[in-house]
Design a protein around this nucleic acid. Structure first.
Lengths: 201, 201
DNA sequence: GTAATTTATGTCAGTGAGTGACAGATGACA
DNA sequence: TGTCATCTGTCACTCACTGACATAAATTAC
């Protein structure tokens, strides 16, 4: 990887860090792009060359996580049913979050705090997810063998479970990757008890 | 109801109609608030006294529907489990949509077309729903007798089913209230087959 | 090592959403 | 009719976001 590429990665991470810190210190709405750009010594125009919008920089890590999730899902064995495959992929994704270097995990936790304090971001996460909806749907339909309304139901149900796992925390609750993983397992357990065996076949 | 109130209702509906027509004719992004305001002979500032944002005017009818849904839900008998109560309330809400006067149903269909062609609006609908999430959650917890993670699961599952019912249509499919009602019933049937009896108790 | 070629960045000018403040117009009501 | 509350238009402003162009820096070719 050349110098140019390394510089870009560095700038990208610097922008994310500056944004997360400013969002935390003075609030999301009160933070301007100019402030973020200024604290990285970069022009505002450059900010928009890295992130399409102010929301995008806040959701940069969730977006990365989604990519990891999609990659993990592709690696799941054919024998697993759609819901099981997605559940396992999600577990592995959260596991990977917990095993990153210090700085990366710091960003993860800061992002979690930000999303917890601004429920409006949930819509943004939905937007992210829906951008990959077609890919997910194709994967589900492939594993099920048919492409019908039932596939949509499986997808919607999984996103619902994922949402519950990520949302709804106590104000002072620790929200690192491990805590999230535990919460996801709890939610998956409830789902398992509620659904009839083979419902996603 | 006085003249002032009637005028306001009239302006509100005129803004919605103008917006929906402009969105349809030239696209959502390409339509400006100034254009909407101009076609109703109202200042742009006044537009924002009726709607908080450009998105809000597009989602005006879904927002109204949500209010109706919440009212219907309150009227459901105590004997119904949370999921059944929400399902019935949703059926009644869609039924009410189909029995409105011509102009209102026209707006309903136009809004549906708009949302179908701009998947980005799904996030907006989520935002709407989440604004009432606390009320819904309270209702579910009340009917279940406890307030725990399971209540969140019931809520998420219902919103998932509702989403599947409203989303995913063929490009040329008719999307009036009756068609939506049928689609919702289909989806509810799938949910019923997939869930163990008493899962939402 | 230098020259030619990409590619990233800064500057500038502009659009459009959204907001606060104030003054004037218009129903509501005694 | 006159007073009061409320709605509206105008103005000025902030901020997110974008296209165009010139410059600077990294990559590649020679």
């Amino acid at each position: 990887m050349g110098l140019r590429e390394r510089k870009k990665q560095k700038t990208r991470l610097a922008l994310i860090d500056a944004a997360l810190d400013l969002f935390h210190d003075q609030g999301y709405e009160a933070t301007t792009i100019d402030q973020i750009a200024a604290s990285v010594d970069v022009s505002p125009r450059t900010f928009f060359r890295y992130f399409g919008s102010k929301e995008d920089v806040a959701l940069a890590l969730p977006a990365d996580s989604l990519d990891i999730f999609l990659a993990e899902l592709s690696d799941r064995p054919e024998s697993e049913s759609p819901f099981v495959a997605m559940s396992q992929a999600m577990r592995l994704t959260l596991g990977a979050m917990g095993q990153r270097d210090e700085a990366d995990h710091e960003r993860f936790v800061k992002t979690r705090k930000l999303l917890d304090n601004n429920p409006a971001f949930m819509a943004g996460q939905m937007r992210l997810l829906m951008a990959s909806e077609q890919r997910l749907l194709a994967e589900i339909s492939r594993r099920r063998g048919t492409d019908d309304l039932h596939s949509h139901f499986v997808l919607a149900l999984f996103t619902a479970v994922a949402r519950v796992g990520f949302e709804y925390c106590q104000p002072d609750e620790v929200r690192d990757a491990d805590a999230l993983a535990r919460r996801l397992d709890e939610t998956l357990a409830i789902a398992e008890q509620s659904l009839v065996p083979g419902w996603d076949k």
